[in-house]
Nucleic acid binder design. Structure first.
Lengths: 195, 195, 195, 195
DNA sequence: TATGAATGAGTTTTCATTCAT
DNA sequence: GATGAATGAAAACTCATTCAT
């Protein structure tokens, strides 16, 4: 991906996040990128293809944040540490790439996503699934379908970022409380309640 | 809202949920509703106006589900019961109106939502906020900004429904586990972990 | 023409004069007339047919004003008197039916005018042509193609009514001056200028 | 205004003059101009905006004809000369730009005319008003509101062009007679009649 | 390579007209 | 006779894409 392409993908992410892919005219992307509308077609055959490129770029960026410094926990205590690291990475991504997050949220079942995009989506969840599995093996994560737990967790995180956007950002204390709350959701229920 | 309008709003919900407002041509809505495209403009001045009507209708339906049988808990034990009722209502809504849920998720920050739609959105959260507040007063819900907890909870629920859609539905056991997990997220942390 | 028809024709005249036939939707005419849109089609087969009816009605009204009290002048002095009467009738029409005048101005070469409308248009000019001819025979009106003089005269009158509309009406003195000026235009040039 | 714009404005003038702005579909303008319908919207945001551009263009052309070779008359005899020049210019305009004249007549009180168009309309009358004023100062033009005289004169001229269109053109003698008749309308009444 | 004017198919919207009540 | 909801064809307008420069 050369300089022009990078420029275009970045610009497209910005405008796609603010509106929608369908609601964003190509000339608007081009203007934001500082190129002519025709230029775009030198690199992608259609707006949809560009949207896929943007999607994959964002998902990969997300994945790379999530796996930063991660290693499979071998002892029960390491799971919480690994979770906290992953949470910190998540927060960093939300902080540094808010448009990427906003964009990704809205593409969940976008009909134009191609195979590569769907693969990127699956790949993004892998590290979290691994952590859940490890935690379950070590007895510190609730026994439930890992995919279900991932969906709860990421869903909660996304809910949080919506609040963050609405409120113009969260305090570190808020992020911390959210982290704790979600960890509580993941850990096994003790005798404290009779389901 | 007369018969034709109801037909159109229902049809629009279906097709908006599947694609997006921007990506759905008016004739497609009309065909789904079994009316001519022009008919739509007898009742709403534009597609956007119709989308707002659909949004408000869906939000109100959601709110009515959420408040079914609800009453303010006066004792600590009643909070969990009230939570379970609300959860059951949520699940019932997801089960009976999956398109409404799918549509609502995607409109969070849609730029065309008017004041009435935004009011409907706020109103939908009120019963949950009330429950959280009551639970906090009675000491059975974690001390944190209620809005933050709501966002976590609804976010998790939405994440769950995405999984449900992808998997073609969840088992009652899954819904139950999710309910328990989220309740764990909401209850105060005990000594089990050192934040 | 029954009561409903009269109502509709009057209403149509009002809205056609303000906008244009092409720019006026049928429902707008109907609302102004206090009937349903469908009612209109009980009396005329199309909007164009109604416009023709309105045109003929307005032209006939114009003609009837113009011929009020008129008689062919037999002596030279009677021509000026006849002219003044006709002018007074013209002014009365402009005063009492400003919308009719405004409407007629704009239909000059409207492509939808049918044969009956065109006949009505021709008929409207007849009394003025007769007066011009009589005046010429008696030597008090300039020798020139009567049709040309009619066009100059009615054109000047129309120009005047535009000014009147713009200024919110003219004073009697203004109307009088205009009358005199136009009469000067019609009378033969004396030796006062060398063409 | 580039080549395409000029083409479109010219084409629009032609078809607007023949029908009406409201009665002329955009594709008809486009076909006449030899461009695609969409092209029009690169340059004007709407058909109305284009109509305003056409109006201003026509009015300016009219004004430029009217002021050709004109200079303020300083002696009484020069007023008639100046009038004849202006008349010749008017006739030249009618001859060379009949569609412009036809179009302008019909837009007098068009509700879509914007501020710029209305300014252009006012400006077009200025040279004639100046001449009338000068003539009045020098005692060779009838004492009456200059605006009133302008309206009579232009009205008469417009009436004439209608006759010309209907008859397929006027002879030079007719134009000459009309010129003389209108000049008679403008000059002060002598003792020849007792108003 | 890059441009951006032009295209034309597709979209939204309007409105004359019909017809069941 | 009158109504006005519904129709659908036509109008206005948008925008992804092409292509001459």
């Amino acid at each position: 991906m050369n300089g022009t392409q990078t420029q275009i993908v970045r610009a497209a992410l910005t405008v796609f996040a603010e509106h929608t892919v369908a609601a964003t005219p190509v000339p608007v992307i081009a203007r934001e990128a500082g190129v002519a509308a025709g230029t775009l077609y030198r690199y992608w055959p259609s707006k949809e293809a560009l949207a896929n490129a943007v999607y994959q770029d964002a998902k990969k960026s997300f994945t790379s944040y999530l796996t930063r410094g991660a290693s499979a926990p071998e002892k029960a205590e390491a799971v919480l540490t690994a979770y906290r690291l992953m949470w910190a990475n998540l927060v960093a991504f939300a902080d540094e790439h808010p448009e990427a997050l906003a964009f990704l949220e809205h593409q969940q079942h976008a009909s134009y996503l191609d195979a590569a995009s769907q693969a990127a989506a699956r790949e993004a969840e892998a590290p979290a699934v691994d952590l859940i599995r490890a935690g379950q093996r070590l007895g510190v994560v609730r026994r439930a379908d890992p995919q279900l737990l991932i969906n709860l967790t990421f869903g909660a995180f996304v809910g949080l970022t919506k609040a963050a956007r609405a409120a113009g950002g969260l305090s570190p204390a808020d992020w911390q409380q959210a982290s704790d709350a979600i960890w509580s959701m993941l850990t096994p229920q003790e005798s404290k309640e009779a389901s």
